[in-house]
Amino acid sequence: MEDKPSSTALVEYSTLDFEPKHQFEAISQAVAPICQLKKPYSVDVGFSVKFSAFDLCGIDIIDWESEPTTSERSSKLVRKSDLDNWAILFVRDGFRYDELNDCLVKAKTGDLMLASYAQSWKSHWEGGNLVTVGLDRDKFSWLAPCLDEVNRSVLNGALTGLLRTFISTLVDEAHKITGDQKQVLSRSFSDLLAASLDPTADNLHNASTTLNAGRLTMAREFIRKNLARPELNVDFICKSLGMSRRTLYNAFEEHGGVAKYIKTARLQACYKALSHETDYRFISTIAYQHGFTNMSLFSRQFKDLYGFSPREAHDHASAHEVAPSSRSPTLLDHLCKSKNYGDHGTG
C-alpha cells in the first residue's frame, strides 16, 4: 500500500496552558526576540493568546488570536537582535495601529501591512485575529527594494485582494499541505508577492498560475455568499470584485463557464437544504432563498442534475441519495496540480 504524503506539522501555542497569573509573562517571554509587550491592566486574571505556526520553505506563517496589547521593538532590541526579516501583517479580524518615525499607520480588518524587523516601531493591537507572514531576508533579497519601499504601510495595489485570499487559504488549509507541496506553494506565494509589489510583465507572467487560481477562489467565495441574490451574474461579479469579464470567463473555463457554475452551486445548496431532515421550509422558500425566481425552471434544472424532483428529495431523502460533492477545487488544489515552475529569481 502506498503511503500518503505527510501533512505539514503545525506548532501550536496557548497561554491557557499556564495559570492565569503567569499567562502574560509566558507570552512576553515567547515574543521577547521580536518585541516587548506592555503589561495591560488586570493581567492576573489571565491573558489569552494562542497561535498556530508552520514553515513554508523560508516563509513562516503564524495565525494569532490575542487580547488587546501594546508592543514595542526598540532601537536597542533591533541592534542586539539577529532578526531583520520582513513580515506581512494580515488583520483578519480586529484593528491595529503602528507608530514609525512619528507617522501613524492604521490597519483594519482585511488590511495587509508590510513590516521590517530591521527598524524600530511601536504598535497597539485592539484584539482579534492577526496573521503574520515572515519573509526570510536571504530568500527575498531579490525583492528587497520593493519590500523596503512599502515598509509600515498598508498595501493597496490591484492584486492585494488575491494576496489576501492566498494567505487566508494557506492558513485555513495548513493541515492539508504536504511536504511535497511546500516548495510549489512557496514559489507561488513569492511570485504573487512580486507581482503585487512590482507588477512588471515578467512578474505577472511568473505569477499567472497563482493569479488565475486566486481569482477563481475569490470569485467562488463571492458566489457562495451571494447565491440568494437574483442579480448574481457576470456583470455583478465583475463590478463587485473589480475583474474584467475576460478574466472571469478564463477563471471558470474549466468549470463550464460562470453561469453554469452559479446554477450548479445554487442547485447543490438547495439539495442540501431539501434533503436535511430538520429543514421544514417549503420547497419554494428554499428555491427563492437561493436565487431561483421561476419554480418550473428550478424543478426542471434540479431533476436534470439529480435525476429526481425537488419534492422527491424533500420527502424521500435517504442515505444513498447523496448529492454530488459541492466541494470545488481550492486554491491549493489548483496550485499543486502542476509542478512545472521555471527557475527565476525567487531563490
Rank of each mutant, 00 (worst) to 15 (best):
M1A: 12
D3H: 10
K4H: 03
P5D: 09
P5V: 01
S7N: 14
E12A: 08
E12H: 08
T15G: 04
D17K: 10
F18R: 10
F24Y: 07
S28Q: 04
V31L: 13
A32N: 14
P33S: 04
K39C: 09
P40G: 14
V43P: 09
V43T: 12
S48W: 01
S48T: 05
K50N: 14
F51Q: 10
F51A: 11
F54M: 09
G58W: 02
I62N: 08
E72K: 13
E72F: 04
S74W: 07
S74Y: 02
V78R: 02
V78L: 05
K80M: 09
D84N: 12
V91C: 08
V91P: 01
R92W: 02
D93N: 13
D93Q: 12
F95K: 14
E99V: 15
L104D: 05
V105K: 03
V105Y: 08
K108L: 08
K108Y: 02
G110Q: 03
S116I: 08
Y117D: 10
W121N: 08
K122A: 13
K122N: 15
W125I: 02
G127F: 06
V133D: 00
V133M: 05
L135V: 10
L135A: 03
S141R: 13
W142S: 13
A144S: 15
C146E: 13
D148W: 01
E149F: 12
V150L: 07
N156Q: 13
T160K: 11
L163P: 03
L163I: 04
S168H: 09
L170W: 06
V171F: 09
D172T: 09
D172A: 09
A174E: 06
D180A: 14
K182A: 12
K182R: 08
V184R: 11
V184F: 01
L185Y: 07
S186V: 04
R187H: 10
L192F: 03
L193Q: 05
D198V: 05
D198R: 07
D202V: 03
N203S: 10
L204D: 08
N206T: 09
T210P: 03
T210M: 11
N212A: 12
A213M: 03
A213Q: 03
L216P: 04
A219K: 00
A219I: 00
N226P: 01
R229L: 11
E231R: 07
E231V: 08
N233S: 13
F236H: 09
I237L: 00
L241P: 00
M243G: 01
S244K: 15
R246E: 07
L248Q: 01
F252A: 00
G256A: 00
G257E: 02
G257L: 05
K260D: 00
K260W: 00
Y261F: 09
K263C: 00
R266Q: 10
Q268I: 13
Q268H: 04
D279Y: 10
Y280T: 11
A287L: 10
G291M: 07
F292K: 06
N294I: 05
N294A: 11
N294C: 15
M295N: 07
R300E: 14
F302G: 05
L305M: 14
Y306C: 05
F308K: 02
P310E: 06
R311I: 10
E312T: 14
A319C: 12
A319F: 12
E321H: 15
E321M: 15
V322H: 13
V322D: 12
V322F: 14
A323Y: 01
P324C: 06
S325E: 10
P329Q: 08
P329W: 00
D333L: 02
C336R: 01
S338E: 11
K339H: 11
D343M: 13
G347H: 15
